[in-house]
Write a protein that binds this DNA or RNA. Structure first.
Length: 274
DNA sequence: GTGACCACCTGGCCGC
DNA sequence: TGCGGCCAGGTGGTCA
Protein backbone atom coordinates (compact mmCIF):
# COMPACT_ATOMS: atom_id res chain seq x y z
CA UNK A 1 0.00 0.00 0.00
CA UNK A 2 1.33 3.43 -0.83
CA UNK A 3 3.07 5.22 2.01
CA UNK A 4 5.35 8.25 1.64
CA UNK A 5 8.19 6.45 -0.23
CA UNK A 6 5.75 4.86 -2.67
CA UNK A 7 4.05 8.20 -3.35
CA UNK A 8 7.47 9.79 -3.90
CA UNK A 9 8.30 7.04 -6.41
CA UNK A 10 4.98 7.49 -8.22
CA UNK A 11 5.53 11.26 -8.31
CA UNK A 12 8.94 10.95 -9.93
CA UNK A 13 7.65 8.42 -12.46
CA UNK A 14 4.67 10.60 -13.36
CA UNK A 15 6.86 13.67 -13.81
CA UNK A 16 8.64 11.85 -16.60
CA UNK A 17 5.34 10.88 -18.19
CA UNK A 18 2.82 13.73 -17.97
CA UNK A 19 4.64 16.98 -17.29
CA UNK A 20 3.51 19.84 -19.60
CA UNK A 21 0.63 17.81 -20.99
CA UNK A 22 -2.68 19.64 -21.52
CA UNK A 23 -5.93 18.05 -20.43
CA UNK A 24 -8.43 17.71 -23.28
CA UNK A 25 -11.12 15.80 -21.44
CA UNK A 26 -11.77 13.95 -18.19
CA UNK A 27 -13.90 10.86 -17.61
CA UNK A 28 -15.07 9.94 -14.13
CA UNK A 29 -16.31 6.38 -14.08
CA UNK A 30 -16.71 6.10 -10.30
CA UNK A 31 -17.67 9.43 -8.81
CA UNK A 32 -16.96 8.55 -5.15
CA UNK A 33 -13.25 8.94 -5.97
CA UNK A 34 -13.87 12.68 -6.42
CA UNK A 35 -14.15 14.08 -2.91
CA UNK A 36 -14.32 17.76 -3.91
CA UNK A 37 -15.90 19.42 -5.84
CA UNK A 38 -18.85 17.59 -7.47
CA UNK A 39 -17.57 15.43 -10.31
CA UNK A 40 -19.27 17.50 -13.06
CA UNK A 41 -17.53 20.65 -11.81
CA UNK A 42 -14.29 18.67 -11.36
CA UNK A 43 -14.41 17.68 -15.03
CA UNK A 44 -15.40 21.13 -16.30
CA UNK A 45 -12.63 22.94 -14.42
CA UNK A 46 -9.90 20.48 -15.43
CA UNK A 47 -10.48 20.75 -19.16
CA UNK A 48 -7.85 23.05 -20.70
CA UNK A 49 -5.51 22.90 -17.71
CA UNK A 50 -1.84 21.94 -18.17
CA UNK A 51 0.16 19.82 -15.71
CA UNK A 52 3.03 22.19 -14.88
CA UNK A 53 4.56 20.27 -11.97
CA UNK A 54 3.92 17.35 -9.64
CA UNK A 55 4.69 17.62 -5.92
CA UNK A 56 4.07 15.58 -2.80
CA UNK A 57 2.79 16.49 0.67
CA UNK A 58 2.66 13.53 3.03
CA UNK A 59 0.91 10.77 1.11
CA UNK A 60 -0.85 13.24 -1.21
CA UNK A 61 0.18 13.74 -4.82
CA UNK A 62 -0.16 17.37 -5.91
CA UNK A 63 -0.60 17.99 -9.64
CA UNK A 64 0.13 21.69 -10.16
CA UNK A 65 -2.12 22.98 -12.94
CA UNK A 66 -2.64 26.51 -14.34
CA UNK A 67 -5.30 27.59 -11.85
CA UNK A 68 -5.65 24.61 -9.53
CA UNK A 69 -3.93 21.85 -7.64
CA UNK A 70 -5.31 18.37 -8.30
CA UNK A 71 -4.75 16.43 -5.07
CA UNK A 72 -4.72 12.65 -5.28
CA UNK A 73 -4.49 10.19 -2.37
CA UNK A 74 -3.78 6.62 -3.47
CA UNK A 75 -4.96 5.10 -0.17
CA UNK A 76 -4.58 1.33 -0.40
CA UNK A 77 -4.12 0.39 -4.04
CA UNK A 78 -4.43 3.48 -6.21
CA UNK A 79 -2.06 3.74 -9.15
CA UNK A 80 -1.61 5.72 -12.35
CA UNK A 81 -0.92 4.37 -15.82
CA UNK A 82 -0.36 5.98 -19.20
CA UNK A 83 -2.62 4.42 -21.80
CA UNK A 84 -3.53 4.74 -25.44
CA UNK A 85 -7.12 5.98 -26.02
CA UNK A 86 -7.76 2.82 -28.02
CA UNK A 87 -6.96 0.61 -25.01
CA UNK A 88 -10.05 -0.96 -23.48
CA UNK A 89 -10.90 0.03 -19.93
CA UNK A 90 -9.97 -2.20 -17.04
CA UNK A 91 -12.88 -2.61 -14.62
CA UNK A 92 -10.78 -1.00 -11.88
CA UNK A 93 -9.92 2.16 -13.87
CA UNK A 94 -12.12 4.89 -12.40
CA UNK A 95 -10.81 8.26 -13.65
CA UNK A 96 -9.28 9.03 -17.05
CA UNK A 97 -7.44 12.22 -18.04
CA UNK A 98 -7.26 12.62 -21.82
CA UNK A 99 -4.44 14.80 -23.12
CA UNK A 100 -4.19 16.86 -26.30
CA UNK A 101 -1.27 14.69 -27.48
CA UNK A 102 -3.64 11.73 -27.76
CA UNK A 103 -2.43 9.91 -24.66
CA UNK A 104 -4.35 9.19 -21.46
CA UNK A 105 -3.51 9.03 -17.77
CA UNK A 106 -5.78 6.55 -16.05
CA UNK A 107 -6.32 6.20 -12.31
CA UNK A 108 -6.79 2.58 -11.31
CA UNK A 109 -7.89 1.54 -7.82
CA UNK A 110 -9.03 -2.00 -7.07
CA UNK A 111 -10.63 -1.13 -3.75
CA UNK A 112 -11.94 2.30 -4.75
CA UNK A 113 -10.45 3.84 -1.58
CA UNK A 114 -8.46 6.59 -3.28
CA UNK A 115 -9.69 10.19 -3.23
CA UNK A 116 -9.14 13.34 -5.34
CA UNK A 117 -9.65 17.04 -4.57
CA UNK A 118 -9.46 19.98 -6.95
CA UNK A 119 -8.32 23.04 -4.99
CA UNK A 120 -7.76 26.64 -6.12
CA UNK A 121 -4.06 27.45 -5.98
CA UNK A 122 -4.49 30.19 -3.38
CA UNK A 123 -6.38 27.85 -1.04
CA UNK A 124 -3.98 24.90 -1.19
CA UNK A 125 -2.54 25.09 2.32
CA UNK A 126 -5.50 26.77 4.03
CA UNK A 127 -8.23 24.29 3.10
CA UNK A 128 -8.78 20.57 3.57
CA UNK A 129 -7.05 18.22 3.35
CA UNK A 130 -3.55 19.78 3.45
CA UNK A 131 -4.29 22.24 6.26
CA UNK A 132 -4.68 19.33 8.69
CA UNK A 133 -1.34 17.66 7.98
CA UNK A 134 1.58 17.55 10.38
CA UNK A 135 5.30 17.93 9.68
CA UNK A 136 7.25 16.21 6.92
CA UNK A 137 9.76 13.73 8.42
CA UNK A 138 12.70 15.89 7.28
CA UNK A 139 11.24 19.19 8.53
CA UNK A 140 13.71 20.87 10.89
CA UNK A 141 10.77 21.73 13.14
CA UNK A 142 10.39 18.01 13.87
CA UNK A 143 12.18 17.86 17.22
CA UNK A 144 11.90 16.03 20.54
CA UNK A 145 10.16 19.10 21.97
CA UNK A 146 7.60 19.05 19.13
CA UNK A 147 6.79 15.38 19.71
CA UNK A 148 6.67 15.83 23.50
CA UNK A 149 4.08 18.56 23.03
CA UNK A 150 2.02 16.55 20.55
CA UNK A 151 2.24 13.27 22.50
CA UNK A 152 1.73 14.66 26.04
CA UNK A 153 -2.02 14.04 25.99
CA UNK A 154 -1.98 10.84 23.90
CA UNK A 155 -2.90 7.81 25.99
CA UNK A 156 -3.07 5.52 22.95
CA UNK A 157 -0.25 3.09 22.08
CA UNK A 158 2.62 4.67 20.14
CA UNK A 159 1.82 2.31 17.26
CA UNK A 160 -1.51 4.10 16.86
CA UNK A 161 -0.19 7.62 17.47
CA UNK A 162 2.76 7.32 15.08
CA UNK A 163 0.23 6.79 12.27
CA UNK A 164 -1.47 10.12 13.08
CA UNK A 165 -0.92 12.26 9.97
CA UNK A 166 -1.63 15.47 11.88
CA UNK A 167 1.65 14.99 13.79
CA UNK A 168 4.11 13.44 11.29
CA UNK A 169 3.00 12.78 7.71
CA UNK A 170 3.86 9.81 5.57
CA UNK A 171 4.17 6.96 8.08
CA UNK A 172 1.88 4.01 7.37
CA UNK A 173 1.46 0.62 8.97
CA UNK A 174 4.51 -1.00 7.38
CA UNK A 175 7.05 1.68 8.21
CA UNK A 176 5.56 2.23 11.69
CA UNK A 177 6.53 -1.34 12.61
CA UNK A 178 10.04 -0.87 11.19
CA UNK A 179 10.58 2.49 12.93
CA UNK A 180 9.49 1.14 16.33
CA UNK A 181 11.67 -1.95 15.92
CA UNK A 182 14.77 0.10 15.10
CA UNK A 183 13.94 2.37 18.06
CA UNK A 184 13.56 -0.56 20.50
CA UNK A 185 10.12 0.74 21.45
CA UNK A 186 7.26 -1.58 22.37
CA UNK A 187 4.29 -0.70 20.13
CA UNK A 188 1.92 -0.91 23.14
CA UNK A 189 3.78 1.84 25.07
CA UNK A 190 1.59 4.90 25.58
CA UNK A 191 2.86 7.81 23.48
CA UNK A 192 2.70 10.15 26.46
CA UNK A 193 5.08 7.89 28.41
CA UNK A 194 7.98 8.02 25.93
CA UNK A 195 11.08 9.83 27.16
CA UNK A 196 13.25 12.22 25.15
CA UNK A 197 15.71 9.52 24.13
CA UNK A 198 12.93 7.37 22.66
CA UNK A 199 11.40 10.33 20.84
CA UNK A 200 14.78 11.18 19.32
CA UNK A 201 15.08 7.57 18.15
CA UNK A 202 11.64 7.81 16.52
CA UNK A 203 12.70 10.97 14.66
CA UNK A 204 16.06 9.52 13.56
CA UNK A 205 14.66 6.15 12.49
CA UNK A 206 11.66 7.70 10.70
CA UNK A 207 14.09 9.69 8.56
CA UNK A 208 16.40 6.73 8.09
CA UNK A 209 13.67 4.21 7.13
CA UNK A 210 11.83 6.54 4.78
CA UNK A 211 15.04 7.76 3.11
CA UNK A 212 16.20 4.20 2.51
CA UNK A 213 12.77 3.20 1.22
CA UNK A 214 12.68 6.08 -1.25
CA UNK A 215 16.14 5.11 -2.53
CA UNK A 216 14.82 1.61 -3.18
CA UNK A 217 11.61 2.70 -4.85
CA UNK A 218 9.34 1.96 -1.91
CA UNK A 219 7.85 -1.28 -0.72
CA UNK A 220 5.69 -3.65 -2.71
CA UNK A 221 3.41 -5.76 -0.58
CA UNK A 222 0.65 -8.00 -1.90
CA UNK A 223 -1.05 -6.28 -4.82
CA UNK A 224 0.54 -2.84 -4.74
CA UNK A 225 2.89 -1.65 -7.47
CA UNK A 226 3.58 1.92 -8.48
CA UNK A 227 2.93 3.57 -11.82
CA UNK A 228 3.58 1.31 -14.79
CA UNK A 229 3.97 -1.67 -12.54
CA UNK A 230 7.25 -0.55 -11.00
CA UNK A 231 7.98 -2.77 -8.00
CA UNK A 232 9.67 -1.30 -4.94
CA UNK A 233 12.59 -3.23 -3.51
CA UNK A 234 12.40 -2.09 0.10
CA UNK A 235 10.30 -5.10 1.14
CA UNK A 236 13.57 -7.05 1.05
CA UNK A 237 14.79 -4.75 3.85
CA UNK A 238 11.77 -5.11 6.11
CA UNK A 239 13.02 -6.41 9.45
CA UNK A 240 9.79 -7.27 11.24
CA UNK A 241 6.75 -6.31 9.18
CA UNK A 242 5.19 -9.38 7.57
CA UNK A 243 7.72 -11.60 9.39
CA UNK A 244 5.42 -13.31 11.90
CA UNK A 245 7.08 -16.47 13.22
CA UNK A 246 10.48 -15.58 11.77
CA UNK A 247 13.55 -15.01 13.94
CA UNK A 248 14.35 -11.46 15.04
CA UNK A 249 17.39 -10.30 12.99
CA UNK A 250 18.98 -8.97 16.20
CA UNK A 251 18.23 -11.38 19.08
CA UNK A 252 16.80 -14.43 17.24
CA UNK A 253 13.62 -14.28 19.32
CA UNK A 254 10.38 -15.09 17.47
CA UNK A 255 8.67 -12.09 15.86
CA UNK A 256 5.05 -11.92 16.92
CA UNK A 257 1.99 -10.37 15.33
CA UNK A 258 -0.70 -8.65 17.36
CA UNK A 259 -3.62 -6.31 16.69
CA UNK A 260 -3.35 -2.75 17.99
CA UNK A 261 -6.48 -0.69 17.36
CA UNK A 262 -7.29 -2.98 14.46
CA UNK A 263 -3.87 -2.71 12.80
CA UNK A 264 -1.71 -5.76 12.26
CA UNK A 265 1.46 -5.08 14.23
CA UNK A 266 4.72 -7.06 14.05
CA UNK A 267 7.38 -6.73 16.73
CA UNK A 268 10.06 -8.46 18.81
CA UNK A 269 9.02 -8.72 22.45
CA UNK A 270 12.66 -8.99 23.57
CA UNK A 271 14.25 -6.15 21.58
CA UNK A 272 11.32 -3.74 21.82
CA UNK A 273 11.21 -3.30 25.59
CA UNK A 274 10.94 0.49 26.03
C1' DG B 1 -9.80 17.30 22.86
C1' DT B 2 -9.56 12.36 22.94
C1' DG B 3 -10.58 7.54 22.09
C1' DA B 4 -13.45 3.89 20.22
C1' DC B 5 -15.87 2.27 16.58
C1' DC B 6 -17.65 1.99 11.97
C1' DA B 7 -17.90 2.55 6.91
C1' DC B 8 -15.76 2.52 2.65
C1' DC B 9 -14.29 -1.68 -0.86
C1' DT B 10 -12.59 -5.89 -3.12
C1' DG B 11 -9.29 -9.74 -3.77
C1' DG B 12 -7.12 -13.33 -1.42
C1' DC B 13 -7.22 -16.82 1.78
C1' DC B 14 -9.09 -20.32 4.76
C1' DG B 15 -12.32 -23.69 6.51
C1' DC B 16 -16.16 -26.47 5.63
C1' DT C 1 -14.83 -27.69 -6.37
C1' DG C 2 -17.62 -24.15 -4.64
C1' DC C 3 -19.29 -21.32 -1.20
C1' DG C 4 -19.35 -18.20 2.81
C1' DG C 5 -16.91 -15.54 5.96
C1' DC C 6 -12.95 -13.14 7.49
C1' DC C 7 -8.95 -10.16 6.82
C1' DA C 8 -6.12 -6.36 5.11
C1' DG C 9 -5.57 -1.30 5.13
C1' DG C 10 -5.82 4.75 5.44
C1' DT C 11 -8.88 7.98 6.39
C1' DG C 12 -13.01 10.50 7.78
C1' DG C 13 -17.20 10.67 10.30
C1' DT C 14 -19.93 9.93 14.43
C1' DC C 15 -20.62 9.33 19.16
C1' DA C 16 -19.54 9.11 24.12
Amino acid sequence: MPELPEVETVKETLKLQVLNKKIKNVKVLYSNIIEYPASDIFIKELIGQTINDIKRRGKWLLFELDNYYLLSHLRMEGKYNIRNPKDSYDKHEHVCFEFTDNTELRYKDTRKFGRMHLICKDDLYTSKPLNELGLEPWDELLTVEYLKDKYKSKKNPIKTVILDQSIIVGIGNIYADEILFLSNINPFTKASELDGESLQKIIDNTRRVLTDAIKMGGTTIRTYTSSEGVHGRFQQNLLVHNHEGDLCPVCKNIIVKVQINGRGTYYCEKCQNN
